[in-house]
Structure formats: C-alpha cells, structure tokens
Amino acid sequence: MRTRLRRLRVDGREFTWKADIRHVPGSGDCHRGIRVRAWGAGKNGRALEADLLSASWPAPWGACATDGVYPTPADVRRIILYALEHGWDPDLRGGTFHLTEAEHAAAFRLPAFLITDRLRDPDAPDPTRRVVEVWSRSL
C-alpha cells in the first residue's frame, strides 16, 4: 500500500505530511501508535517527526485490533506549530527534528494522543501506564 502524502497550510506556508499506523507494545496491552512526519521545505528540508500514542482505553479486544483513532489535519497543525515554537527549522537541510516524550510530553498533548518514545526506543516508559493514567483523569 502506498503512503499518502497530504498538504496543510500553516501561517501561509505549505507543509507536506504523512501519518503511518504502528503498534506500541505495553505491559498491559498493545496500543495504537502513529508516526507523523512533516516537511516544510521539500524533501531536502529538515523533517519533523512525532510518534503519537493513542489515549484510548480500555479496548474490548485489545487496542491494536480495535482502536481506530487517527490524527486530523487540526492535530497535525498543532504539532507543526508547537515544533516551530520549540526549535524546528524546516528550512535547514537534512536531518530530523524529533518531538520526544522525554523533552516534550509534559508540555504538549493532543486530545486523543500522547507523545511516545516507545516506537524508537523499546526501553522508553511503559505506554499502558501512561494511557491508563490519562484515561483515569478523564473520568
């Protein structure tokens, strides 16, 4: 299946983005993860990458099997704006600017997602614990 690239205008500038569905293993379940990548200066510009963790809980047959959450263009706009405010320069050539859990999770959250490092680092904090904490606070 071919990846779909989407376009989004933010503050008069056009960005290209994509979101790939992944699975994030946790101690209590498998969770839906989404890797969002965005570019603001073509394929040679510095990419933005944010690994998102679905905040949906509980799932009757496992979150990996039944969770259908996917980032909206409004979510991606918020990611881009946050990254621009926190040091992402899409005009730089090459490389990737990562929104990491360790650096950004306390300050940035989307309604349906948390930032996770678990997609890149299997030793990152347990996603099940974080999802359950967020879900418990929303009750």
Rank of each mutant, 00 (worst) to 15 (best):
L110M: 13
R9S: 11
L99I: 15
T72N: 06
C64F: 13
R77D: 13
G45R: 04
L81Y: 05
A47R: 11
L81W: 06
A106C: 03
L81K: 14
V69I: 11
P73W: 10
D75E: 11
H31I: 04
W17V: 08
R22W: 01
D67W: 00
K18N: 08
D29A: 08
F97H: 14
D89F: 02
L99M: 15
L8D: 09
T16P: 02
H104Q: 07
D91Q: 14
P90Y: 00
A102C: 09
A38V: 10
V69G: 02
V69K: 06
I21F: 05
G42V: 01
V24K: 02
R13Q: 12
I115C: 08
W17I: 07
G68R: 14
L110I: 11
T16H: 11
S56G: 08
L84V: 05
H31N: 03
C30N: 13
E85D: 12
A74N: 12
D51Q: 04
D11A: 13
D75I: 11
A19I: 02
H98C: 04
L92F: 06
R37W: 06
I79Y: 09
T66Q: 14
A50G: 11
T66R: 06
P73Y: 09
R109F: 03
H98Q: 09
E14N: 10
G62W: 13
A41T: 08
V69C: 04
R77H: 14
P25M: 10
R46N: 15
A105C: 06
A112W: 06
P73T: 11
R22M: 12
L8E: 10
D20H: 10
I79V: 15
P25I: 08
G87M: 10
F15H: 03
G68Y: 11
T72Y: 04
N44D: 15
G87I: 07
L8R: 09
A47L: 07
E101W: 06
G94R: 08
L8N: 10
A107W: 02
P25K: 10
R9P: 01
C30R: 14
G62P: 12
L110Y: 13
L110H: 13
P58V: 12
P90N: 03
T72E: 12
H31L: 06
F113C: 00
D91S: 13
G40N: 07
P73L: 09
S54W: 01
I21Q: 11
V10G: 02
A50P: 04
D91T: 14
D20E: 15
Y82K: 13
D75A: 12
R46C: 15
L99T: 09
L53P: 01
A106I: 01
L52K: 02
V24A: 02
R9W: 12
T66P: 00
A112I: 00
P90E: 03
P25E: 10
L84Q: 06
A83F: 06
I115A: 07
L48V: 13
S27K: 09
A38N: 07
W61Q: 03
I21V: 11
I21G: 05
K18F: 10
I34P: 01
G12M: 02
R46W: 08
V10R: 03
R13E: 11
G45P: 02
L84N: 04
G33S: 12
D89W: 03
G33C: 10
D51L: 02
G40V: 04
A47F: 01
A107K: 08
G94H: 09
L48K: 14
T16F: 10
A65D: 15
P111R: 15
